[in-house]
């Protein structure tokens, strides 16, 4: 099966590969896997006080489509608010990369990774806020 040009481009020059400190309170980490193909994707965001994603990094073990999907996802969510980022849909990723039907699950994985990173960040922030407020 042939990969689309955009997939190959992201695969050969992945954007934002790397790791952020997952202990950092401003960092949210999403870790998702696709049992059907054994792919694993880690996507991390650094969020500023205004709720804007300042940085995003990913590390994906999987096929070209999975790598391209996560690379594109980090590119898209950088500079967006977490609420905007949460609206990124797998169908948009699949369309941008011209993913064939058998590779749609790669874009689903990327959407799940974004959501899981945002959730992790929100959970951390809620814990921090309740800590700062102190005991009632």
């Amino acid at each position: 099966m042939a990969y689309s040009e955009k997939v190959i481009e992201h695969y050969e020059n992945p954007r934002n590969v790397g790791v952020l400190d997952k202990e950092d309170p401003s960092v949210g980490t999403g870790l998702v896997g696709a049992p059907a193909c054994g792919d694993v994707m880690r996507l991390q965001i650094r969020v500023n006080d205004a709720g804007v994603i300042e940085d995003a990094k990913f590390k994906t073990f999987g096929c070209g489509s999975a790598i391209a999907s996560s690379s594109l996802a980090t590119e898209w969510i950088k500079g967006k608010s977490i609420d905007e980022a949460a609206t990124v849909k797998n169908s948009q990723i699949a369309e941008e990369l011209n993913l064939p039907p058998v590779k749609i699950h790669c874009s689903v994985l990327a959407e799940d990774a974004i959501k899981s990173a945002i959730e992790d960040y929100k959970k951390k922030r809620a814990a921090r806020l309740s800590l700062e407020k102190g005991p009632e």
Binding site: L31, G38, V40, K59
Partner: peptide, 19 residues
């Protein structure tokens, strides 16, 4: 197919590290 439960985060972490 494709509706399996999401693997536990600790397990995925292991897989990521092994790879």
């Amino acid at each position: 197919e494709g509706r399996e439960p999401q693997a536990a985060p600790a397990f995925l972490m292991d897989v990521l590290e092994l790879r």
